[in-house]
Design a protein around this nucleic acid. Sequence first.
DNA 1: CAGAGTTAGGCGAACGTTCGCCTTCGCTGG
DNA 2: CCAGCGAAGGCGAACGTTCGCCTAACTCTG
Lengths: 335, 335
Amino acid sequence: MYVSLRDVAARSGVSFQTASKVLNGRPGVVSPATRERILRAAAELGYVPNAMARGLVRKTSVTVGVVADDFSDLAVSQFVRAAQRAAAGRGHAALISSVHADIDAELAVRKLLEYRVDGILVAAPSLEDDPGLGVALRGPLPVVSINRIHGVDVPMVGSDHRATGELAAEHLLGLGHRRIGTVTGPSTRHVVGSRMRGFRSALRAAGRSLPERRVVEADWTYEGGWAAAHRLLDADPSVTAVFVHNDTMAMGALKALHERGLRLPTDCSVVGCDDLSFAGYLVPALTTVRVPFQETGERAAMLLVDRIGGKRIPARNLLPVELVVRESTCPPLSS
Amino acid sequence: MYVSLRDVAARSGVSFQTASKVLNGRPGVVSPATRERILRAAAELGYVPNAMARGLVRKTSVTVGVVADDFSDLAVSQFVRAAQRAAAGRGHAALISSVHADIDAELAVRKLLEYRVDGILVAAPSLEDDPGLGVALRGPLPVVSINRIHGVDVPMVGSDHRATGELAAEHLLGLGHRRIGTVTGPSTRHVVGSRMRGFRSALRAAGRSLPERRVVEADWTYEGGWAAAHRLLDADPSVTAVFVHNDTMAMGALKALHERGLRLPTDCSVVGCDDLSFAGYLVPALTTVRVPFQETGERAAMLLVDRIGGKRIPARNLLPVELVVRESTCPPLSS
DNA sequence: CAGAGTTAGGCGAACGTTCGCCTTCGCTGG
DNA sequence: CCAGCGAAGGCGAACGTTCGCCTAACTCTG
């Protein structure tokens, strides 16, 4: 059904190995005339090389695997997109395997190994404590991740979570807020801890404390953010500003504050995190700490390809975060 | 580096072909004892079959290719996610190739062909008029698409766009609106035409017309929707309701209406389209026509796999759309 | 004109499987 | 006692490449 090298060779009167050489562009190994003949035959026949056969002998599939959390999450999808694109730009196809409830990480990785991917990109924060992933990824295969992986130490690329927390706190403190609350992601996540450390340390530096009632944990979703904001304001109606650990939850929080009859941002400022594409189109437009997902994906893919090519790559790669001030923050009323 | 069938065979004292048979689970071809020995050797050695070698002889890679528009678009990402998942559930890995400015469709498809994918899933509405894609997809390879493809007739799965327009119009008319505007996607897109036909016919059935000044075209983005809503209300400040062709633009439109000092939904109702995950968390929560992207992805993948398996599949598969009423629509003030 | 060098292309082997046919051997039944 | 059979497993071929070495025929050079 597919045309093979043999067919091309037959039509141009050379051995198939010679056709191979020409089609792989080795210069000067045949005369211009034969070269031309082979190329023409290939075009006429519609020859498409067989990557499996090639991979078999070359011992590389020129493919990277991507193990990602469910990418209904905008952050994950941005990452995957950028990574796929960067990998493609360097010649590598992307075999994507998203993990979710009914497919465990070990199986997902195993599939990738069967296809003999040259390396694996991991974007699965929800699996950072899954021992299975760690076990599956032990071994000589190059791996780059954006989250830690239980039990193995792989090169990571990510952003400065501590700075994220600091930036948010400093911005709100700078505006004059004193009673600041926060809606965090699941406390089991490493990123949440780091952000909280930055957040707390900035508050402390300004002589402010963060009582437990002003810290509410949620699950990264719109709904979770919405419910958490309600809980937070029930627990302490005096807060004048909230730092929410991602924009998705911030959107839910905005809605909750609105439902409580608060006027935004005057009655309550909100700082989000991520700077997803919709952040500027919320009402009020969301002030947020930009996390460079796209650059992260790009960088991760680049590093992985470098690593595959035998280069040494740094174990830790931190990309800078940046505060994006929009309309959802202002000085508190009292000041 | 990887252990091969030969290694497993050596360790268990059989020929590698026999090991192959056992590991592929052919029943009863060896004695239980040898079987056990081979299985154990494979486990101890950490044998992972080589899908390339297997694919070479079996002439199938058990892989599907996905050609998708840039999936920063939430609709596309939902589709891809569901499709990948469904394919994985039926044993097929997904090779994803997103098309964008700097990679043309032909190249993307060609790559997939090199990997000898068993079929291709297309989710690239932006390429519906790209002749290149059509050319690349001509041929015997099974294809299922969610959009038409220039020059070839492939099985499609999608939703009922005409009904979408009707539903939106009927809802607004039912509330008593008479001057209704619309923000559409690019008029070159087939889906836009279908929705407009449904929309127009419902208006006409109610004795209403749709003057040109109440139709504004935009580009599916937040920003585009925002700008279009401003243009629409500049052109005809008397409209009391707007049907926006996707939720992303609707979000932008909501913001624009808000900026104009309109009270929502009282001064102006908005109906979106898609029912993206954030729709319920907008302020006001968005009334929208739900387009079942996830089911579409799932269905498309299923059909493709069926088709690969030699089954006949229907050429047109329409999934139902559904109006989801939330808070962004209400009767007009005048009534 | 002999020998060396260069150019053009042939050719065998290997990559890791699957598949189907073949061989060997021990039993069984008539 | 022997034909025949079933069970267990061996084995050759093929899949479509790449790679490196080999050969044959020219072309110089002195």
